[in-house]
Amino acid sequence: MSDTPLTAKAPFPPAVIAATTHETPGVRHALTAVALTYLALFLLLPLVMVFAEALRGGLAAYLSALTEPDAVSAIELTLLVAAISVPANMLFGLAAAWAIAKHDFRGKTVLTTLIDLPFSVSPVIAGLIYVLLFGLHGFLGPWLREHDVEIVFAVPGIVLATVFVTLPFVARELIPLMQEQGTADEEAALSLGASGFQTFLRVTLPNVRWALLYGVLLCNARAMGEFGAVSVVSGHIRGYTNTLPLHVEVLYNEYNFVAAFAVASLLASLAIVTLIAKSFLQWWYGDALASGPKR
């Protein structure tokens, strides 16, 4: 038994024991290499490519592509559309989250599913529905023309399509977080004599501020970058209904690649800034964001 002499005391044999609870180093390195190569080819290279092509004609060509009147008006329109649709969806998200997360009522699951609906609808269909409603041959088309109201092929259509596409972003960040936080804080505030609005402003809002910022960030990125839905309702009228992504398409189809990539680099920068801000929010305030899978 224990008095049997021990076998092999000197150098330890290779660790056979780790092999069943972990991958062997070879497998680990191979998997890491495959994953990083895939990410480099599919994610990083396109990004590098945008900036490389944008600067291919030199800095002067790059700057002039960004400062020519059509580009400037596209920038202005994109900012205008985001300035309307983001606050609108932020207010909606707050209202929806307050109703869904802090109260009980029937049909809550259906409502939550409906809020996510725009994510599972093709952007092109998002544009189409407004054309069917407000277009020349749409349901309200004749009436709108009689009263000289332009929606499709004009700024209101672009705003509507953008609002549709970006509608879920803020709500779906806030709802799970506010559900998790419960209602104890709010009840305490109310019992101390705060009004409902004061409670919301001073208790609820500070509790969800980072998640709100997170949602707004994603919402804004999509609002400024939306292509399909906006493309359908815009009519591509240069200097009037062209947003930045549409302007990229116009330039690209005119074989003006340097200008197309220059404008694209502007949008790519927006994406990078968004990603950085989002990552910092997750690192620093990860606990204050909703738990569970991040989309």
């Binding site: 990410l39 994610l43 990083l44 396109p46 990004l47 490519m49 945008v50 092509e53 952007p123 994603l218 990125a221 400024m224 970058g225 939306e226 292509f227 399909g228 930045l244 992504p245 549409l246 990229v248 398409e249 690209y252 690649f257 197309a260 990539f261 694209a264 949008l267 790519a268 927006l270 994406a271 990078i272 968004t274 990603l275 950085i276 989002k278 990552s279 989309r295």
Partner: peptide, 20 residues
């Protein structure tokens, strides 16, 4: 952080970059 690039990058930009 880069994983989310496809969510953040406008599809038109992704389109011309991938085409290129």
């Amino acid at each position: 952080g880069v994983i989310d690039l496809p969510f953040a990058l406008p599809t038109a930009v992704a389109g011309i970059a991938l085409a290129g």
